[in-house]
Amino acid sequence: MTFDQLLQNLANGISLGALYALIAIGYTMVYGILRLINFAHGDIVMIGAYAAFYGVAMFILPWWISFPLAILLTTGLGMIIERVAYRPLREYPRINLFTSAVAVSFLLENLANVIFGGRPKAFERPAFMNEMITIGNTQVVSYTPFIIITAVVLFGGLLYIVNRTKVGMAMRALSKDIEATGLMGINTDRIILFSFMLGSALAAAGGILWATKFPQINPWMGVMPGLKAFIAAVLGGIGNITGAVIGGFLLGLTEIMVVAFFPSLSGYRDAFAYTILILLLLFRPTGIMGEMQAEKV
């Protein structure tokens, strides 16, 4: 492999990792607070992409209106899901919450199938994302830096909210102990809703960016990214936002690099994530950034 190819793969891996990371944040925030594997999160990604697609293709909006609008709409959907399908079950066994997430996931996918049609649609990138950028002998299409830059800006914003604002402090408190946080006079319902809002917004952004990188959208497009992002969240130590970002980049880079160095393994590409996941779970079950939590006996 030449040096240029390496750089190209690196750019590819980092942009894929950025997408995993964006989606992983929503998983990790929800898990950190509710201990819920929100399997509908991947479908939020899909809805985000479709909303952006229809904004441009049907309502002929320019991308800079369509994309934020899509994020807004999808965020609203994410909040409705929390309110309708998760909040009433919070006091019940967690299998109910999990099954509810599965049912919501089924519903979103199949509604999308009914409304948008099962056939893949071609997502049109805004013109400025199709430019070829040449640095030395390395060529990348401009959507790659756009994805990376957007993701980094969003991470910065998120870290600011989580670490520097009151809501962020409440979120962190909630992930330690919901009940105690409630007793402190914090409206836990609102903070949980807020977490879903943030997570869904990032997932929608991730979905749109995903569609610019892989410009074919279909009702099931969110399933695999969702699962991979979840694995990224576990890799980073579920419940830990920085961990989710690290896990996302790590997973994206690994997937691209292993195939780049060992092309014969390309058929097993999807298996890497699971293999890394299982090995990690067995040897360091709390992930890279997670803290060890011993059960009180």
């Binding site: 019940y92 199949n110 009914v114």
Partner: peptide, 22 residues
């Protein structure tokens, strides 16, 4: 015909059972 509609109905049914017959 609406292809995929029965899975929509199934998801709604599943959701209803989970939410109301816990």
């Amino acid at each position: 015909g609406i292809p995929g509609m029965r899975m929509v109905l199934f998801s709604i049914l599943l959701l209803t059972v989970i939410l109301f017959y816990r």
